[in-house]
Amino acid sequence: MNQVMVAVEGISDEGAVRSILREFNLTVHLTLGRNGKAALLSKISAYNDSAKYMPWFVLVDLDSPDTCIVEKLRQWMPNPSEYMLFRVAVSELEAWLLADREAIAQFLGVSVDRVPRNPDSLKDPKQEIINLARRSRRREIREGLVPRQGSGVAIGPTYASDIRNFGESMWRPKVAAEESPSLSRCLRRVEELANKLYKNTDALKDHLRET
Rank of each mutant, 00 (worst) to 15 (best):
P157H: 11
I129A: 00
L97K: 02
A133Q: 04
Y159G: 00
A46H: 11
L59Y: 09
S19P: 08
A51W: 02
Q149L: 01
S121H: 11
L98W: 01
E192A: 07
L145D: 12
E128S: 14
A95V: 05
G144V: 13
Q106V: 02
P80M: 02
L30I: 12
I155M: 08
S81N: 06
H207R: 10
V8M: 06
L183V: 00
H207D: 03
K123F: 05
R134L: 04
S12W: 04
A46V: 06
I155P: 00
P173Y: 12
Q127C: 06
N131T: 08
L32Y: 07
F24C: 08
N2K: 04
I20S: 02
A89G: 06
A46K: 11
M170K: 07
N2P: 01
P78H: 02
A105D: 07
A154D: 14
S151V: 13
S50R: 05
Q149V: 03
I141W: 12
L183W: 03
E82I: 04
A38D: 10
V112A: 11
S184Q: 07
H29S: 12
E179I: 01
V112G: 03
I155G: 00
E23I: 00
I20A: 02
S111G: 13
R101C: 03
L197Y: 11
N2S: 08
S136P: 11
L145W: 05
G167S: 09
A176F: 08
L187H: 10
I141E: 07
E143T: 15
I20H: 01
R22V: 02
L97Y: 04
R142W: 11
K196W: 03
L41M: 13
E128M: 14
N131F: 05
E92S: 09
L187Y: 04
L40I: 12
R164K: 06
P55R: 00
T67W: 14
A154L: 13
A203Y: 14
L208S: 14
S111Y: 12
K205L: 11
N200R: 09
